[in-house]
Simulated assay, not measured.
Amino acid sequence: MQALHQISTPHHTITVYETSELYGERGRFRVLQFSNEAVQGAMDLDEPDRIVFEYPRALIHLMEMNRPSFEDVFVIGHGIGTLARHYADKRVRVAELDEAVVEVSRSWFGYAQDNVTVGDGRVLLQGERDHSFDYIVVDAFTHLGTPRQLVSREFFELTRRKLDPRGAVLLNLMAKHEQDPHIRAVHTTLREVYPYTKSFLLPSEGMTELQNIILMGGNAPLVYQGRQMAGFREIELAAGYVLRDDWAQQ
């Protein structure tokens, strides 16, 4: 591993490095990592347009399968800009809390679009017109995981107002195990707001490794093709508690 760049901000310690092996795959990879050693994005230097990780490939399939002609997307969490780069021909608006993440994506990963706004994703989404998006994608992490304000009932109610009636919200999450109580709570909260939901897991090789979970909620039945889910499989999550904004619980 060769470290190329590191910067500390109030939100993260951001590291960029290159490696010849990434999760068992050999090649030349440039990686964005945050302070908790969680990889936030990776580029194949020999094939820069290739989407390296499974979860954005699964998100892309779900988006294209459920609404092939979609045009408007709001993304919370930028990383290296994988989704926005892939959908350069669509209207994608990105919210990123940390300005340094945007600068790193441009300087080290060649992100060239002018569609990222620095600020709190929930606040920025609040300022958008109602019923204006086909999809809202939440892909935001801190050292504690996905911020509570992006998985609460009040947040999901906000997403439903901002989505077109046929739109859907997608969340990329990390779990300690398949029935992680927090993930069950997020899913239960999502079901409080959306009549249709689906949950997908990317199995990990080791029992102690964090597992990647995708949740999707919409107003219409949700469909997918298993062979196109990049290794994710649908799971049933047990009921959990409902997450509310901190102020709503006081």
Rank of each mutant, 00 (worst) to 15 (best):
M1G: 14
A3E: 15
L4A: 07
S8Y: 07
T9D: 14
H11T: 11
T13P: 09
T13I: 06
I14Y: 09
T19Q: 06
T19E: 07
F29M: 08
Q33R: 11
F34L: 05
Q40R: 09
Q40S: 10
Q40C: 02
Q40T: 13
A42P: 10
M43T: 12
D44P: 06
D44N: 15
L45N: 15
L45S: 09
L45T: 13
E47I: 14
P48C: 11
R50M: 12
V52T: 15
P56K: 03
A58F: 11
L59N: 01
I60G: 01
E64L: 09
E71W: 02
V73K: 00
I76K: 04
G81H: 06
G81R: 00
H86P: 10
A88H: 11
V92A: 03
R93A: 11
L97P: 12
E99K: 04
E103K: 08
E103D: 14
V104M: 10
R106S: 09
F109N: 03
F109K: 04
V118F: 05
G119E: 05
G119K: 01
R122Q: 10
R122E: 07
V123G: 08
L124D: 10
S132R: 01
D134C: 09
Y135N: 01
D139Q: 09
T142G: 07
T146W: 07
R148H: 02
L150S: 07
R153I: 02
E157W: 12
R160D: 04
R161L: 13
K162E: 00
L163E: 02
P165E: 05
L171S: 13
N172E: 12
Q179A: 13
P181E: 14
R184I: 14
V186R: 00
T188C: 03
P195I: 04
F200G: 07
L202W: 07
M207K: 14
T208M: 14
Q211N: 07
L215S: 03
G218E: 00
N219H: 08
Y224V: 10
Q225D: 13
G226R: 12
R227Y: 09
Q228K: 15
M229G: 04
G231A: 11
G231H: 12
R233N: 14
E234S: 13
A238G: 15
Y241H: 12
D245L: 05
D245W: 00
W247V: 14
Q249N: 13
Q250H: 05
